[in-house]
Design a protein around this nucleic acid. Structure first.
Lengths: 342, 342
DNA sequence: CTGAAAGCGCTAACAA
DNA sequence: TTGTTAGCGCTTTCAG
């Protein structure tokens, strides 16, 4: 804890050669066999490791990528971070986590902080997006990759998923299982996911040939279990005023879906017997829940990996054209809509 | 994306003053009112932000702290990271996440990488600890805080929790509820948590005045739901060979507990009716599970915050004496051991 | 209070 | 192949 780190100059002196030769022998190319051995030996004796800051200053490269999300506790973001870390680490990049807060303005602020040059790029997941944020991304001094909305028209690299289509898959799934009285449990509509999922639900219900007996939408205060319970109670209450009661709830994410299941249980309803429930995001939580949750996978880890790949490309050539990658949603059927029974 | 960042020198020239004055005006002290305004204006016009790398090189301070864990996907570590981030961010520190791998050697390797000076300190959670790792921590060039085992005898700062005592709380709780046939579902014994939790269980069962009819221990291959199911099946099988069957399972963490609940369900056993189940870590997962999980909170977020506080102290004065903080375990009683019934 | 200059540790021209 | 030297952007002595 008190030892002082050796510098390149010290290694050079110890080896009795020049600073440049030492650097070359250690990292770069073009050093004789003998030189390399000599320097290596000296470095080993001194326990030398190259200083990351000195190198960064010179090379104008930090080998760090920022990952910015509203809330690092969210399991979906955690999955993405894993994906990102997984592809970045082998390339020698470190991952710096940052929190955006949940307004577009605070996210823009974070993007602006890239001006201090502490990372080579940023992967950001804005909960909400506005023009200022987009402008800030466009003028950022390092590559920024957005996970969320496709931002092709603004020349911003992004990884998106068609969560609207995903909700459609969920709706069709419950219809296929014979459910006709569908409740939609969504989160705030002024968020990117909330807006697109609502669009997806409305489209799916309004599609040609879709036959329903009853359709209700309820908006939770947030994408959490607690808010999900509260909103689901309203959903069931509202629906139970007039018979017949809902026989399926499509939720905008797994947390809300679990809230719906809890609310259903409170009313003595069985899942999936009385009411089928679907989630979205395919979280660990949903996988291990009882009943395990039918959920639309949005490929969190895959999106993280894709964003990291984009980033890798951009750090190689920052002026390359912005690219968009879409990861398709996939319905994972589990117990909360099936359970052996039809 | 193509704009080039302004440097301090450019600001100085624009303001028509020296480099030193510019620096002082912007950050340090001892600049006249007029100077500050002049420089501020120039900086604003150029959209200047101080370069983090240049500053780091000069100040020998990166304003970054590493957080190293075996697996960033683990909800407990995520909670800790939140805690750490929460206290560090307001002090201007960034958090760099790193993965240790699950051997002591790979963790030691990570600690050694501190020699490249990319962070001002590291909070590490070693799954396994050996002498080499401890030695590496002791000779690290920056402060290292360990979350896990108390390492006072080695002069290492650490935040620990008495998980052995926590298991004792769980055991006494199920005994209090009248259960007498207890299964212990643990993870690998060669891990730090596995070892201490086993110790805790054995001590609790062996304590004076403890009366049981049957005690079984089963070791899962890992602290996961999947391994928990497998090991819990063995536990129930084993126990069912001879009557009477287990009426409580104390699990070494929430994931294993959920595995136990699933295995119980497979056998048609109700929880908590036929068998009470306790977990440990008090994860979100356990809180929202059905039945919600009685769990021993080890204060994950609190330990993260404590580690960060220790770190803050150490970065202020690296030579201060190593400190140990203990966070007490706390049993949180929920449905998986109660449910209205006795 | 302000300016000149040194130097943190490193890599990459450029010369030899 | 090797050495000399400049300089990345910044803060901080040290003089004035």
């Amino acid at each position: 804890m008190t030892s002082t780190r050796a510098t390149l100059l010290q290694v050079a002196e110890r080896a009795g050669v020049s600073l440049a030769s030492t650097s070359r022998a250690l990292h770069g190319t073009g050093a004789s066999r003998a030189m390399v051995e000599r320097v290596r030996a000296a470095a080993a004796e001194l326990g030398y490791s190259a200083d990351a800051i000195g190198r960064s200053l010179r090379m104008k490269k930090t080998f760090q990528i920022a990952f910015a999300v509203a809330d690092i506790g969210n399991p979906v973001y955690v999955e993405m971070m894993r994906g990102i870390h997984e592809v970045l680490a082998p390339h020698g990049y470190r991952v710096v986590v940052m929190t955006t807060g949940d307004t577009a303005a605070s996210a823009a602020e974070l993007v602006r902080s890239l001006n201090s040059g502490f990372v080579d790029g940023m992967v950001v997941i804005p909960l909400r997006t506005d023009d200022e944020l987009i402008a800030e991304i466009q003028r950022a001094p390092v590559p920024v990759v957005v996970i969320g909305r496709a931002l092709s028209e603004h020349g911003v690299s992004s990884v998106s998923t068609d969560s609207a289509a995903g909700i459609g898959q969920a709706v069709r799934h419950v219809l296929d299982r014979g459910r006709r009285r569908i409740g939609f449990l969504n989160g705030p509509l002024d968020t990117t996911p909330g807006a697109s999922r609502q669009r997806g639900f409305d489209a799916a219900i309004g599609a040609e040939g879709v036959h329903t007996e009853r359709v209700e939408t309820e908006i939770a205060g947030d994408f959490t279990v607690a808010e999900g319970i509260v909103a689901a109670r309203r959903l069931f209450d509202r629906a139970s005023g007039q018979a017949p009661r809902l026989d399926a709830v499509v939720a905008a994410n797994d947390l809300l879906a679990i809230g719906a299941i809890r609310a259903a249980r409170e009313l003595g309803l069985s899942v999936p017997g009385d009411v089928a429930v679907t989630g979205m995001d395919d979280t660990e939580l949903g996988r291990v829940f009882l009943p395990s949750l039918t959920s639309v996978s949005l490929g969190s880890a895959a999106r993280g990996r894709a964003a990291a790949e984009l980033m890798l490309g951009l750090t190689d050539d920052p002026d390359q054209q912005a690219r968009q990658i879409a990861v398709g949603p996939e319905l994972i059927v589990r117990e909360s809509t099936t359970d052996g029974a039809a």
